[in-house]
Amino acid sequence: MKIIKDERLKLKNLKDIRVLFLIQTIGIVGILGYDFVTKGINGMTDNPLWFVFMVTAIVSAYLSMGISVDHESSDKSPKKGLAVSLAVTVFIAVVIGILTSLSEGIPAINGVLVGAIIFVCGFVPCIYVYRLRKKTNES
């Protein structure tokens, strides 16, 4: 295969890939929806397509973060954005942890565990966006 050098063909190829990705995602969601209706939530999450769908969603979200950072104005301070993001993440993790601990029949350690997991899941994207912003400001 020859390497495509024409920009119009590259753009057309990217649009075709986008359409294929959309059709594939609709198919996966359809299969998972069918499993949800017939087997319930446990049957849906036991399907290997659930793992593929989750990984695809996470990778897509990280890739779109890079694009959104490129469109931001460069006068924003990355450290200030990191501080605000981490403060919101800590707040959400603490509130969810407390609400989980106060639930009837659930030990307090589960609330701490859920809060810690929520914090880590929010902390990683905050650091990723901070590094992207820092790299963009240095360029």
Rank of each mutant, 00 (worst) to 15 (best):
58 I>F: 14
11 L>V: 09
15 K>S: 07
91 F>L: 14
56 T>C: 02
7 E>N: 00
99 L>I: 05
24 Q>V: 15
10 K>Y: 05
49 L>M: 10
84 V>C: 00
113 L>S: 07
12 K>N: 09
40 G>F: 11
12 K>A: 13
16 D>C: 04
101 S>F: 04
48 P>S: 10
1 M>F: 11
134 K>P: 02
75 D>G: 03
13 N>E: 15
109 I>N: 06
112 V>P: 00
99 L>K: 02
106 I>S: 03
64 S>W: 15
113 L>T: 11
55 V>G: 09
5 K>Q: 09
4 I>D: 03
68 S>A: 09
25 T>P: 00
112 V>T: 02
130 Y>I: 05
116 A>K: 00
126 C>F: 06
81 G>I: 02
94 V>I: 14
112 V>N: 03
128 Y>A: 06
42 N>E: 15
89 T>P: 00
109 I>Q: 06
30 G>E: 01
46 D>K: 12
88 V>K: 12
87 A>Y: 06
39 K>G: 03
127 I>P: 01
46 D>M: 08
25 T>F: 12
64 S>A: 11
88 V>W: 15
24 Q>R: 05
56 T>R: 10
108 A>P: 00
139 S>K: 13
113 L>W: 03
69 V>E: 10
133 R>E: 15
105 G>E: 12
120 V>I: 15
41 I>G: 08
60 S>H: 09
61 A>Y: 07
116 A>Q: 01
104 E>K: 03
75 D>T: 08
52 V>E: 10
62 Y>Q: 10
5 K>R: 15
3 I>Q: 12
101 S>P: 01
57 A>W: 05
79 K>G: 06
112 V>C: 01
36 F>M: 07
110 N>I: 14
39 K>S: 12
57 A>P: 00
119 F>V: 01
128 Y>D: 08
72 E>R: 08
87 A>P: 04
130 Y>F: 13
67 I>A: 01
67 I>V: 08
